[in-house]
């Protein structure tokens, strides 16, 4: 099971703050995104250029490997401070 989280604008567009996706074996963030896009048009924002990815709360690239139990978050560029 992969725990997926969305924040800020992405959370609103997805219509959910988090969801779980069944996953057996190792995969990458990029293929997880493909799966999400196939599932639901609401995730279209994931194909935009300005998507930040965190795997287990560390900023990562789309080729990052993920396994069962991992937490993957998608969010827009940050604007704190």
């Amino acid at each position: 099971m992969i725990n997926i989280k969305f924040f800020a604008d992405f959370r609103e567009r997805a219509g959910v703050a988090s969801l779980k996706l069944e996953q057996s074996g190792e995969t990458t963030v990029a293929s997880l995104v493909e799966t999400l896009l196939e599932q639901n048009n609401d995730f279209e924002f994931l194909s935009s250029k300005n998507v930040l990815i965190a795997v287990n709360q560390t900023l990562s690239a789309s080729d990052a490997k993920i396994n069962d139990g991992d937490e993957v978050a998608f969010f827009p560029p940050v604007t704190g401070g």
């Binding site: 924040f7 800020a8 604008d9 930040l52 965190a54 900023l59 978050a73 969010f75 827009p76 940050v78 604007t79 704190g80 401070g81």
Partner: peptide, 14 residues
């Protein structure tokens, strides 16, 4: 610290 906070800490303003 401020420069990196602005660019990498996961916080968003609405």
């Amino acid at each position: 610290i401020m420069d990196y906070l602005k660019n990498s800490a996961p916080l968003w303003k609405k």
